[in-house]
Amino acid sequence: MNFETELSNGKFCIPECEKCKKITWPPAEFCSHCFGTISLKQITGDGKIIEFSKQGEHYFCMVEFFEIVRIIAKISKTPKIGQTVKISKCGIKNGDHFFQII
């Protein structure tokens, strides 16, 4: 199971080390703490918007999960700092990861 394969199927997973249980972010082949094998966990729980800006009609937000995993994601409604959000859509488009939150 590979992060990108899961993502391209619309699933956002968290890469966690089988050995030390720490999260490696951005995703990598091995744990950045102990070089242990990474396994993927389906994300549970909400993310939090920590910053945002807007290009044209589209807001882009820095979203944080578990105080370590951060992504830049799109949101359709006006965001607020500290707002809790969920990933509504994600995948890979033209080689780039993309995330949509609600």
Partner: peptide, 14 residues
């Protein structure tokens, strides 16, 4: 981790 927002104008905006 920057998603589709890889151009420097996005980190600079943040």
């Amino acid at each position: 981790s920057r998603g589709e927002f890889k151009h420097p104008i996005f980190w600079a905006s943040i």
